[in-house]
């Protein structure tokens, strides 16, 4: 296990270094930030001073060497936009995304397991049909549309929830609901499919023949053996949420890392782009290792 973790960590570090190198050069290809940071009527002299102040007048390979040297000293650079440490900016935003992603993926997985299992237990029933319809609709509804309609109905029309922002538990309801829709829809389909095949297995017939209670057969025997594909898909969905939920963050004014990353790319705030990618890449590598470990817990045949 320790060897496995060490090997995964080593590979992850190599991947992060490769990713950061790629991001460093790709961001520089987008052009000169002074075009965006200075007023249109700035003089050439002012533009040159801006480049000098921010080290952008150096050859790109020299800028890269500076970046690597600073990285070794855990100096991730200053945000051009915010006049403060780029890593501080990224680390302030990331927990907001992580909290939202954790709640959304946990709730959607739990709910999908329940609904998918019950639908598979009675295939073709009214519940199964409704579950399939709702899950497919959820998976395919555009999140920005659901978000705006949700605000118009629950905040403007009924006055039950705040339109956006953070602060109280009521602020969580709409963003979490919108973020849950797609994972819930996909996971219900996965759970239903794997459960249908599990419930048709000989060991379930044996369990039924032994007279085990229905609930124990579904949730105790069939579900446990159906969970591996669910974990794979849920892990993949969690990864995309950890990377930031740009639409939800933008509409609901949630100060997460997804919107920060997009804004930084548009604004050519290179240090923040690099820091957000470093933070999310590290989180995704940790998440992937956790998913691998979860496989071993769920399936005793898997050993590292």
């Amino acid at each position: 296990m320790i060897t496995y973790l060490g090997r995964r960590a080593f590979h992850s570090i190599l991947s992060v270094i490769g990713l950061l190198t790629l991001v460093f050069f790709l961001t520089r290809l987008t052009g000169d930030p002074s075009a965006l940071y200075l007023p249109l009527d700035s003089t050439a002299e002012a533009r040159a001073a801006f480049a000098r102040l921010n080290g952008l007048d150096q050859p790109i390979y020299w800028q890269f060497l500076d970046y690597l040297r600073d990285l070794l000293q855990l100096d991730f650079g200053e945000s051009l936009r915010q006049n403060r440490s780029a890593m501080q900016v990224a680390l302030e935003a990331f927990p907001e995304t992580l909290k939202l992603a954790a709640v959304a993926i946990t709730l959607s997985t739990a709910l999908a397991i329940l609904v998918g299992s019950l639908a598979a237990a009675r295939p073709g029933s009214m519940f199964d049909r409704v579950a399939s319809f709702v899950s497919l609709a959820g998976a395919s509804a555009p999140d920005f549309w659901v978000a705006i309609v949700g605000i118009l109905v629950f905040a403007v029309g009924l006055g039950l929830l705040p339109t956006s922002g953070t602060g109280t538990w009521a602020h969580w309801i709409m963003p979490v609901f919108v973020l849950m829709l797609r994972p819930f829809g996909l996971l219900v389909q996965v759970v239903r499919g794997t459960m249908l095949s599990a419930l048709a297995s000989p060991y379930i017939k044996t369990a039924r023949a032994k007279g085990l209670p229905r609930q124990k057969i579904i949730f105790g025997h069939a579900l446990r053996n159906s969970l591996l594909p669910v974990v794979t898909v849920a892990g993949d969905l969690a990864t995309s949420l950890v990377n930031g939920a740009v639409v939800v963050e933008s509409i609901f004014g949630w100060p997460g890392i997804g919107k920060l990353m997009i804004d930084s790319i548009i604004q050519r705030d290179f240090a923040v782009v690099q820091s957000t990618i470093l933070v999310t890449a590290t989180a995704i590598f940790i998440l992937n290792i956790a998913i691998d470990l979860l496989y071993a817990v769920l399936d005793p045949r898997i050993r590292y």
Binding site: L152, V156, T163
Partner: peptide, 13 residues
Amino acid sequence: RPESSIRAAMVET
């Protein structure tokens, strides 16, 4: 809030 409709809704509510 970047969305105009959300800003308008916030004043309305």
